[in-house]
Design a protein around this nucleic acid. Structure first.
Length: 829
RNA sequence: GCGAGAGUGGCGGAAUUGGCAGACGCACUAGACUUAGGAUCUAGCGGGUAACCGUGGGGGUUCGAAUCCCCCCUCUCGCACCA
């Protein structure tokens, strides 16, 4: 043992010990209860950043704590290894994406090991490994056979910079989530996963996720966006056989529908005006809309615009003919791409009606005021009582919705309906570095899935990275040209690869049996480990990865691969790491390299600061001096143990003894600290306050002077306290804690120890400080026995000199007491 | 605009049930040790000479409010014509 705290030396020593002993290996034949802890796996970008340090430090505290608590902990790590940066790097420097990726993985793995994270490295996986993605191809084929994977021509979000399609979830405010390039629309044949089939279950099961932050659940619920309403057919006046179907959530306002508007992309948009006087105007409008859509980012400050088609349809309820407009605010992808226009009760319709002079018909009465069509300045969108609505007049909106829906069904005019905002997940990517979609196109047999015994469709390795001509796979003849597995005729291969979010949608299940090479998952082991008990990651995946993973879990369940409905029981979304008021990023030039910290202060210091500076869910403001503070604490602890080592080692064991009167406070403080840290670990993962409590206890112990320490009993309790500190610190700073534990003469390794229990009896105090207030203001303190009766406390309080000066000559109205806390003397006014 | 969250010293943050506001740490100040200090130790550290005033602002409930209720302001995040 040395005088100076030398983190590098002890950290590599303990990392080696853990590796040799395989301390963190998890097996399924363990009698203890299982606990599956997972942090979102990293993209192997090159080196770890502060966000990783924070995320994985949080996870490691929980992993080590749960082991001490007697759980069989699974804590795996892997690599989300497919994706664009690898391919872009390949194009830039002529390296193969595989080489670039694997090199990054090996460097980052070594960095994570240097942080001392307690992973079961025996389960490591990389998604670019064909032993991983082959199973994903199998899932794809199973989904294809069930109609859950399908191909369709669609308008997609295209990013020119990434040269690929993006899913709806990957477009953030019209920009690409990865590179911030403006996204444009493009028509392409694309593969989709039918996530909409699961919309209702994904929504319903949000209620089961009581261990998720409300914020994330709200975002998911909104993203799925369920609307209850009705579809209503409005027959065309010219051709009563034909009709336009609208979707509405406010069928109670149908009597106020004075026009109908359809999206510019609606199939009838041009059709209706063909041959009429309106045709020219409609064509012009459609052209204009198309242009504007592509040149403008902010869709929200759009003026409402439209064009009359020249056609009319019949409002089936009023039997009045109403004009059909094309309107720029109607979305083709939502509902039926057509809406009924009710200007009196929908703000958009109101604005549109104002511009085009369409009639406003009030059909809902407000409870508190009189609405008049020619006076209102905005639509009345709340519910109320139906008026001017034929036989439905007098019903509340709620009753009206029900009865109108029933009437619709009776008359065959429409039906009750449910619509979702959620769209199917577009998974085709026109890029090389991803899992190939296992489909073959044959002229005779059309789309044929690659037979299972021919999987995997291996991503060809020898390919030139020119960066030109779009997807590289299309240029590779020997990959593209195949024979049809069904008829043996000439055929071609699908050249799109899958969205990398597909890989991350099931990796947590693969960790349960990563060595299984006959099937994607070993159901027995998967059932043992799943669901993940605690998942930790950035909130930026609130609707991306977390929604996809939930969807995939349900699909895999339905295909019989696993048994849980939801993958993640508890979710902790950690905040970002901020410096100088902005998220750390290369472009802002405010990054702190974790490697620098490890080299200079050691991993324990980096971990301690990341955990101490803020509670996990909040953003963490990086502060270089704060890091030094954390380092200072560990150095002080080290020095204290070293300087008092002989005395501590010779001190008697006092844990089970009753301390003498003057040491009761010390024992109480020790047990209070254990209680506090335990609660912070269990209930809310507020490591910052737990660490603060440990520091506080250490401050008390380290303040003892030579004279005090010379007493045997004091030394005994100090030893007890220091040892509790070391144990409590172990999950946070495992290396230095392990070393101190060893140096205090313990043979058994700290990582095998149980978490300390606090002694409720030791928390009890004999006397307590009671705060005395006069009119709610703090005026003094008294010390009384804990079992003192109220009368006595009141007498003592009134006698306290400072208190007396405030109540002298005043009349006391009453005295309020909170047991063991405070006395409030209320004076009459 | 809608939805969610948050506003506490110079800074990061404590205060778990309405009961001592500012734990713990950083920065700062003074002192000690020292050839030296970006090391270490000791003391101080919300404002105000004080009475007092202080948890974004204003009102309310209460013996008592950072905490509960109402109104307003600011910031962050998410969604953004979803019929």
């Amino acid at each position: 043992m040395q005088d100076r705290y030398n983190p590098q030396e002890i950290e590599s020593k303990w990392q080696e010990i853990w590796e040799n002993k395989q301390s963190f290996r998890a097996t399924e034949d363990d009698p203890r209860p299982k606990y599956y802890l997972l942090e979102m796996f990293p993209y192997p970008s090159g080196q770890i950043h502060m966000g990783h340090v924070r995320n994985y430090s949080i996870g490691d505290v929980i992993a080590r704590y749960k082991r001490m608590r007697g759980f069989n902990v699974l804590h795996p790590m892997g690599w989300d290894a497919f994706g664009l940066p690898a391919e872009n790097a390949a194009i830039e420097r002529g390296d193969h994406p595989a080489k670039w990726t694997l090199e990054n993985i090996s460097y980052m793995r070594q960095q994570l090991k240097k942080m001392g994270f307690s992973y079961d490295w025996g389960r490591e996986l990389a998604t670019c490994d064909e032993n991983y993605y082959r199973w994903e191809q199998l899932f794809f084929i199973e989904m294809f056979k069930r109609g859950l994977a399908y191909k369709k021509l669609s308008t997609v979000n295209w990013c020119d910079s990434c040269d690929t399609v993006l899913a709806n979830e990957q477009v953030i405010e019209e920009l690409c989530w990865r590179c911030d390039q403006e996204v444009r629309e493009k028509k392409l044949e694309q593969w989709f996963f039918r996530i909409t089939d699961y919309a209702d279950e994904l929504l319903r099961d949000c209620d089961k996720l009581t261990g998720w932050p409300e914020k994330v659940l709200t975002m998911q619920r909104n993203w799925i966006g369920k609307s209850l309403g009705a579809t209503i057919r409005f027959p065309l006046v010219e051709e009563p056989e034909e009709a336009i179907t609208v979707f509405t959530t406010r069928q109670d306002t149908v009597f106020g529908a004075t026009f109908l508007s359809i999206a510019p992309e609606h199939p009838l948009a041009l059709e209706l005006s063909r041959g009429t006087d309106q045709e020219k105007e409609v064509r012009q409008f459609l052209n204009q809309v198309r242009k504007v859509k592509h040149s403008h980012k902010e869709t929200h400050d759009f003026e409402k615009e439209g064009a009359f088609t020249g056609a009319y349809c019949l409002n089936p309820f009023t039997e009045e003919p109403i004009p059909i407009y094309i309107a720029n605010f109607v979305l083709s992808e939502y509902g039926t791409g057509a809406v009924m226009g009710v200007p009196a009760h929908d703000q958009r319709d109101f604005e549109f009606a104002q511009i085009y002079g369409l009639p406003i018909q009030i059909v809902i009465e407000a409870p508190d005021r009189l609405l008049e069509a020619h006076k209102i300045m905005e639509a009345y969108i709340d519910e109320g009582t139906m008026i001017s609505s034929g036989t439905f007049t007098g019903l509340s909106s709620e009753e009206g919705k029900k009865e109108i829906a029933e009437h619709l069904e009776e008359q065959g005019w429409g039906k009750k309906d449910i619509r979702y905002r959620l769209r199917d997940w577009g998974i085709s990517r026109q890029r090389y570095w991803g899992a190939p979609i296992p489909i073959i196109y044959c002229e005779k047999c059309e789309m044929v899935p690659v037979p299972e015994d021919q999987l995997p469709v291996v991503l060809p390795k020898h390919i030139a990275f020119t960066g030109e001509g779009g997807s590289l796979l299309t240029q590779l003849e020997e990959f593209v040209q195949v024979t049809c597995p069904q008829c043996g005729g000439p055929a071609t291969r699908e050249t799109d690869t899958m969205d990398t979010f597909v890989e991350s949608s099931w990796y947590f299940a693969r960790y349960a049996s990563p060595d299984e090479n006959r099937a994607p998952l070993d159901k027995k082991r998967v059932d043992y480990w799943l669901p993940v008990d605690q998942y930790i990651g950035g909130v930026e995946h609130a609707v991306l990865h977390l929604l996809y993973a939930r969807f995939f879990t349900k699909v895999l369940r339905d295909m019989g691969w696993l048994s849980v409905d939801e993958p993640f029981v508890n979710l902790l979304t950690q905040g970002m790491v901020i410096k100088d008021g902005a998220k750390m990023s290369k472009s802002k030039g405010n990054v702190v390299d974790p490697q620098f910290l490890i080299d200079r202060f050691g991993a324990d210091t980096a971990r301690l600061f990341a955990l101490f500076a803020a509670p996990p869910e909040k953003d963490l403001e990086w502060n270089d001096q704060g890091v030094q503070g954390s380092h200072r604490f560990l150095s002080r602890l080290w020095r204290f143990v070293y300087q008092n080592r002989d005395r501590l080692m010779q001190a008697p064991s006092v844990a089970t003894q009753e301390p003498s009167a003057e040491l009761k406070d010390m024992r109480r403080q020790i047990h209070r600290t254990i209680k506090k840290v335990t609660e912070d670990m269990e209930v809310r993962f507020h490591f910052n306050t737990g660490i603060a409590a440990i520091m506080e206890l250490f401050n008390v112990l380290s303040a003892l002077d030579e004279k005090a320490m010379a007493k045997e009993e004091v030394a005994g309790w100090t030893k007890y306290g220091v040892e509790r500190i070391v144990i409590l610190l172990y999950p946070f700073v495992p290396h230095v804690a392990s070393q101190l534990w060893e140096d205090l003469g313990h043979k058994e390794a700290l990582d095998k120890l149980s978490w300390p229990e606090y002694d409720v009896g030791a928390l009890e105090e004999e006397t307590t400080i009671i705060v005395v207030q006069v009119n709610g203001k703090l005026r003094g303190r008294i010390s009384v026995a804990v079992d003192a009766i109220e009368e006595f406390i009141e007498k003592e309080a009134l006698a306290e000199p400072k208190v007396r000066s405030f109540i002298e000559g005043k009349k006391i109205d009453r005295v309020v007491q909170v047991p063991r806390r405070l006395v409030n003397i209320v004076l009459s006014r």
